[in-house]
Design a protein around this nucleic acid. Sequence first.
DNA 1: CCAGCAGCTGCAAACGCTTCCAAAGCATGC
DNA 2: GCATGCTTTGGAAGCGTTTGCAGCTGCTGG
Lengths: 341, 341
Amino acid sequence: MPGIKDVAERAGLSIATVSRALSGKGNVSARSRERAQAAAAELGFVLSYHASSLASGRNHNVGVVVPSVHRWFFSSVVEGVSASLLDAGYDLTLYNVSENRRHSVLNDFLLRKRVDAVIAVSLELSETEIRQLLAIHRPIVGIGGPLPGASTIRINDSGIAEDATNHLIHLGHSRIAHLTGDAAYQQDFRLPGTRQGGFEKAMAAAGLPVRPEWQVSADFTVQGAYASARRLLGGSSERPTAVFAASDEMAIGTILAARDFGLRIPYDLSVIGIDGHELGEVFGLTTIDQDARGQGALAVRLLLAGLGDAADGGSTDTEFPTKFVVRSSTSVPPRDTVPLR
Amino acid sequence: MPGIKDVAERAGLSIATVSRALSGKGNVSARSRERAQAAAAELGFVLSYHASSLASGRNHNVGVVVPSVHRWFFSSVVEGVSASLLDAGYDLTLYNVSENRRHSVLNDFLLRKRVDAVIAVSLELSETEIRQLLAIHRPIVGIGGPLPGASTIRINDSGIAEDATNHLIHLGHSRIAHLTGDAAYQQDFRLPGTRQGGFEKAMAAAGLPVRPEWQVSADFTVQGAYASARRLLGGSSERPTAVFAASDEMAIGTILAARDFGLRIPYDLSVIGIDGHELGEVFGLTTIDQDARGQGALAVRLLLAGLGDAADGGSTDTEFPTKFVVRSSTSVPPRDTVPLR
DNA sequence: CCAGCAGCTGCAAACGCTTCCAAAGCATGC
DNA sequence: GCATGCTTTGGAAGCGTTTGCAGCTGCTGG
């Protein structure tokens, strides 16, 4: 296995010059650079990552902590992060952690100085944990989760939930159900509650009642929402004319359940989601598009910018823009509906 | 930032002893071990990853190369790999690479000695590339892709495609369509062709004709398959009575398209897939379950076992078992169908 | 009672780079 | 022609561990 020394010898240069030539830092004459690169190529030499990191203190490695890589939002973010990181020449160390593993990951991995920065997606960290990270000069940006003291990227969850609800209200709906996250989900991510808050706010503003039995919860998956929606739509005598689902995956589950009961979307039931899921198009789903990949990419930009200068201290909170996408899953309520008061 | 030296001082031990105490290697008295650990804890000390790796030559880091983290199969494998790796105390470096980036990733990242091993998912590597990796003592295992010279985990694609087709044939179907991968996909992964081969074999064995217009391709996504299936089912006068889709996501796309045309599953159209996708249950999809997470976990087991001993040389090829799951999307063909000959 | 041995411990040499510092090379301006 | 300043180069000191080697201690068995 050739070392930098071998390259230096072959190129007739010093180790120092070869190092500078290959890393691109510092002044090296064009001639030396070429010689060094040629020699390296001939020997099939590549810098040792660990030696470089040890000597320079830089890792070129960002840790990404996600609760799952299987669900739409997370895999989208990871793809966005991954692409940006690769472009920048950074490695991405993935920590796909369930909640009960959080702690050990933090201690055993993140703190071991092996990452330059951390991107935490929908991960709830305590202030102490964040301080720990910042204390060892590890910038940290959170996506979709509250990270007191760290930089965060988030969408206006409450606001878009209001928008979604208002969209239904403006169409004339008054019998509106909300499909939210279940307890487990709420605990970790807070997000369902925030969206539910927006829903309630919009309903209240319109003077519409929020029926408890029309507030159902699921686990944010299509399957889970499908099961919940079957109960919502199949069971009682009274049925809502519209459903606002807290995610597109749940909206799709709702649509599937509705179809089972022969309900036509949007004539018998309007459905709106949040996300911008690729499948939305197939279902004609009206939704609010939060560009998850874009959020991932932005997180990287933020970090990389931050890694240059001090980075600590300044914790920004960026609100990521969303886009209302109207498709065919929402329309006016059935004509014979008695409005709710 | 405390170093091992500080710990040694505080514990009244030498650096060497502290190192041994904390890493668990070598003989250390119980008393010394406790002191070292206590001192480390008090100082909030953690071993530097890079220094350890540099000195020991071990990274505790496995590189995972996937073409996407967004599609079912890949994210499932990644989850399986991730969990196993975390348990074993390894980091997972994710390379989410599009085909045109393959090369630079290999050179810039994998070869930089920063990973102990590589798991390549559905990645086509040339023999040269594999040799490169093995040459620097990096065991490599491939999942779902042909890796000449490396260890691989694969399912019997041809066989299960035959099984799936035979399932339809045994039910009495003769008008069977096949939804396969498109050209781009085939180029990268070979897999669509293999499954198609199994399909054709089963058809031939049953003396059934394979109609070219019933061999449609899509990009392995629900959306893509939905579009293709609409063309298949909506267009021509003659319609197949059954569709064998090369993946569950495509099977689901087919079911959605069928519903659009008012076709009842399975009475008017039987659909079978391959994968074991979580959504299969919602659609009552008959499928062949390949435990993707399990495959990921197995890959890690293989690697970790290999990392211990020589690892090189012996390249195993493991066929991963699959499970036929019969649900409600397949049944006998409509009674009035004229069998094809 | 002492050689022999095993378990602990510490010293110091790697590990393979980066980068500070000083020296050398080379124009330029006066 | 010489001082000046800038670019380029090489020497060598780290970076923070692991680990081979040797010494030390305390037992055990003869």
